[in-house]
């Protein structure tokens, strides 16, 4: 009897839920795990310093975030998607098809990608070509295309330490992987002259493929988890070299030693000036259609890109974000609610 009553009351709760689901008063954010720490820092400061509630920030990757973003317009869809890469045309189309027709693109700054090894290990001074030769499935040796024969860094270039090659690189689901392939492996392929040999020996298309295909003999390990996993792997395999975000490295300088690329030490300054080659812009995408229905949405966007937060010397920069030199233009675009073409 009692359970029957409970069931009835439970059903009443479900019924009531449909009506209670109406007005949402906090901003919902989802997307890139690289942008997540910056977004939480801003969300926290926004909640503290304004009368608006603190936005809810989820992570799950750029693609997952943009997919959710493009599900439609309304209370039960997210307002902002964080991304560590620009939105793709296919995603814009998906957005348009679902009625998300006005999207604001906001670039918050740049993120550096660094190579770091255990603090007690050897010092490294890499070039992109070294990384290509170390990790590519096929390399060019004496003018011929051969399967990658290198097992030690010193075999690639005599200046490098006599240490086994072991690299922990981000898995294919990470946005970081694309940047790594484009700015390190592909650049190294060109730099070392292997690209030309591949093109003549294997043909245009296969040559390009050969530039990007990585060796699978265990020297290059894909990490599908986050940077904490890469750090744990390096701590157990001391001769490993991992790929990290600059902010992660800066929080763990007591455990990690960073390598230079082309003689340039990664830092917020060298990345801002463009000297350090491996960096990428970070974005968030905002539904203009939600401005006015979700309280504080525009204020949040303006707060995010304000000089106090995203500027040089602000809390985001102190966490490892490289401030955007064109921040003033971004601020103006946000104030004017400029949308991107779809």
């Amino acid at each position: 009897m009692k359970s029957a009553k409970l069931t009835v009351s439970a059903l009443a709760v479900i019924a009531a839920s449909a009506t209670a689901a109406a007005a949402r008063d906090q901003i919902q954010i989802s997307g890139s795990s690289t942008v997540l720490p910056y977004a939480t820092i801003v969300a926290e400061a926004f909640g503290e310093n304004t009368d608006f509630p603190t936005p809810v920030v989820e992570s799950g990757g750029s693609s997952a975030g943009l997919k959710k973003f493009c599900e439609g317009v309304g209370e039960n869809t997210i307002d902002i998607a964080n991304a560590s890469r620009p939105i793709k045309d296919s995603e814009k189309e998906a957005c348009k098809a679902a009625g998300v027709t006005e999207i604001m693109e906001v670039r918050i700054g740049y993120d550096g990608i660094v190579f770091a090894s255990d603090i007690s290990g050897n010092d490294f001074a890499f070039t992109s070509a070294d990384w290509f030769n170390a990790l590519s499935a096929q390399v060019v040796k004496d003018g011929k295309v051969v399967a990658n024969p290198y097992t030690k860094w010193s075999e690639i270039r005599a200046d490098l330490p006599d240490q086994e090659i072991l690299a922990f690189i981000p898995g294919t689901k990470h946005g970081t992987r694309e940047v790594f392939e484009e700015k390190v492996i592909a650049a190294g392929c060109k730099e070392s002259g292997a690209a030309e040999v591949f093109n003549t020996e294997l043909g245009e298309e296969a040559g390009e493929q050969a530039c990007l295909s990585l060796r699978t003999d265990g020297k290059s390990v894909d990490i599908d988890g986050d940077y904490t996993e890469t750090l744990a792997r390096i701590q157990s395999a001391k001769n490993g070299i991992g790929v990290f975000g600059l902010s992660f490295y800066e929080n763990n300088t007591d455990k990690l030693k960073v390598a230079t690329i082309g003689g340039i030490q990664p830092s917020t300054e060298s990345i801002a000036s463009g000297e350090y080659p491996v960096s990428r812009p970070l974005y968030f995408y905002l539904k203009k259609q939600h401005i006015g229905t979700v309280p504080g949405l525009k204020e949040f966007a303006e707060f995010f890109v304000s000089d106090d937060l995203a500027g040089a010397g602000g809390p985001l920069a102190s966490y490892g974000l490289v401030a955007d030199p064109e921040l003033a233009a971004t601020q103006k675009a946000v104030a004017d609610e400029v949308t991107i073409a779809q």
Binding site: G47, V56, V57, G60
Partner: peptide
């Protein structure tokens, strides 16, 4: 994970319901 509860939440929810 899929229903958005794996998130950074800073404001306490009020009392039920």
């Amino acid at each position: 994970l899929l229903i958005g509860m794996v998130a950074f939440v800073k404001n306490f929810p009020s009392a039920p319901p």
